[in-house]
């Protein structure tokens, strides 16, 4: 089958699944009660995980579905939480008529605030890119955003990343009666100063300067190692969560969705791989439909 046919088949499958989900919701049927959600969840989970072996049609389908659904989800979310609620809700808080249309955003309960005309105009400027002759106006909006956040962040970072952290490093390095507390503080001060020295760019790292900056690298690597271990533990818990879902889904009353999906997926990929064997140089090309 050609790629176009595969694309059409994929779209039909997604449309059918979406329609079925919407119908189930409108009929008051909980997807989990009939195991439908488990089947979809198992298919998508295994589809994404199949990437660990190689690129294949299941991964492509799941990836495109994920990207498409999330993009449309965020557009809808931004519209309803920002444009509808925050912008139009504040510009037109009462029911009014405009060019023969009735505008009613009173449900948000805001008071009128005409300062919001500025973001409206800046937003419209961004859309000017659609007309090439006046597309340059969109740079004004971009400049506003970049300049505004540069100013805001410079203060925030100076306060939290410089002043606050420097203040917290003002620790006594000798504490009578508590040697280890003092030693801890000494390690902290040496670590901060040497790591800062590593980030000196305008001086060559040689001699004493180089030695101290190497101590700084040592401290940085220790902290990165600790962060790595901590983050890996978090990721493992995510993986366990996914496996937990697959195991929970795999019950007799649901029809063993995760097992059936896995077996079918392996079988289809094996057939595709055998069919295309010797055609391509890359492992991924084995799964080209």
């Amino acid at each position: 089958m050609s790629k176009d046919v595969w694309t059409i088949v994929s779209i039909v499958i997604v449309a059918a699944l979406s329609a079925l989900s919407v119908a189930a919701i409108s009929w008051g049927i909980d997807n989990h009660e009939i195991g439908f959600g488990f089947w979809i969840g198992s298919l998508l989970t295994m589809g994404i995980m199949s990437y660990l072996y190689a690129d294949n049609p299941f991964y492509k389908f799941t990836e495109h579905l994920f990207v498409g659904v999330s993009a449309s989800y965020w557009i809808a979310t931004y519209y309803w939480t920002q444009i509808d609620t925050n912008l139009l809700g504040r510009l037109f808080p009462e029911k009014t008529s405009f060019l023969g249309m009735t505008i009613d955003f009173s449900r948000h309960g805001h008071e009128q605030n005409l300062w919001y005309l500025i973001p409206l105009v800046l937003g419209l400027f961004m859309l000017a890119r659609l007309i090439p002759s006046i597309g340059w106006i969109s740079r004004w909006s971009l400049s506003f955003v970049v300049g505004l956040y540069a100013g805001l962040r410079s203060y925030g970072y100076l306060q939290s990343n410089v002043m606050q952290q420097a203040k917290e490093t003002f620790r006594p390095i000798i504490i009578p009666g508590d040697f280890w507390a003092g030693f801890n503080h000494l390690v902290l001060v040496v670590g901060v100063v040497s790591a800062l020295l590593y980030f000196f760019f305008s001086k060559e790292h040689k001699g004493m300067f180089g030695t101290i900056s190497r101590v700084g690298i040592f401290f940085l690597m220790v902290s990165f190692g600790a962060a790595f271990g901590f983050a890996v533990m978090g990721r493992i818990s995510l993986l366990i969560g996914r496996f937990d879902f697959l195991i929970r889904a795999s019950t007799a009353e649901n029809g063993y969705p995760s097992i059936v999906v896995t077996v079918l997926m392996v079988a289809i990929l094996s057939i595709l791989a055998m069919k295309n064997k010797g055609k391509g140089e890359d492992e991924d090309e084995l799964f080209e439909p």
């Binding site: 306060q159 420097a166 003002f170 006594p172 390095i173 000798i174 001060v189 901060v192």
Partner: peptide, 30 residues
């Protein structure tokens, strides 16, 4: 900043040892 950290830590140490009675922390408190 590095000099400030070293001086600040020394002052805190002298403070704990009872040599001085002030701290530089308020200078950086926002």
């Amino acid at each position: 900043i590095m000099i400030a950290i070293v001086v600040g830590a020394l002052v805190e140490t002298l403070n704990v040892l009872g040599v001085v009675t002030f701290s530089l922390k308020p200078l950086l408190a926002v």
